[in-house]
Amino acid sequence: MNNLKLIKLSAASLAALLMTACATPPYVPTVYDASASKVQTIALADDSVPDQMGANELASASGTGQAAGGLLGYLVVSAIEGAETSSRKGALEELMAPLGFDAEAEFEAMLKKKLIEAGYGGLEMVEVKRNGKSALKAVPETSADAVLNIDMVKFGVQKAKTGEQWRPAAGVKIELVETATSEILMENMISYNSGILGVKETEGFITMAPSLSSTGYKKIKEMDPVVVRDEMRVMLEEVSDMIITLL
């Protein structure tokens, strides 16, 4: 191959790379149009919140070292952060254990109350087997018109880097599935305090952030568990409010 051909090939292949390498697909939700739906009764899928709170640091102050670019870099960075997270998670669990805070029970009670206020009936809890997946493999048996399947993939506290403050965070996947047809009537994601905890950072899904009045802590050992629990409750209230607006 002569050099001119090599140049052309290089330019063409790299131009193609330029076009495809960064093509992060946008998130395309399914937006519910209540005026076009007959859903009046809703069942709630259980197992909506993880048993344990997470503690995630997005990235260290000096960066996370050299990694390959693009998606691979993202995965490498995530792996580093994941390793750092486990010991913090243990410390947070130890801190919160005496309170007996049942986030899932509280969250589901909030949802039921708000669904009733929004005019929906039914509201039985239905058992689902997630096996690590958010979406329902099969619609559980229920007499309700649809199943509201909420999977809070992660919940807990998060900080940007060493020296910054831990604040509440969650990543939530939501779907409303019609019982009779298994059709997904609504599907969306909520990222509370950063796009990375639980769901991938892309445009187009719902993003929420704690208010300036929320309490942040620089270290887990400095946390007041009662304050952290109350901050979690504020987040769960805000997230459940948002979910109702999607219906």
Partner: peptide, 29 residues
């Protein structure tokens, strides 16, 4: 009024004399 966290990723390149290069991502919170 909000407090927000996120990451900022910078692409870093190291060029050698022969024209070769290495690259990486530096992610900061």
């Amino acid at each position: 009024e909000t407090v927000e966290t996120g990451t900022r990723a910078k692409q870093v390149y190291n060029y050698g004399l022969s024209g070769s290069y290495s690259s990486g991502t530096n992610t900061q919170g």
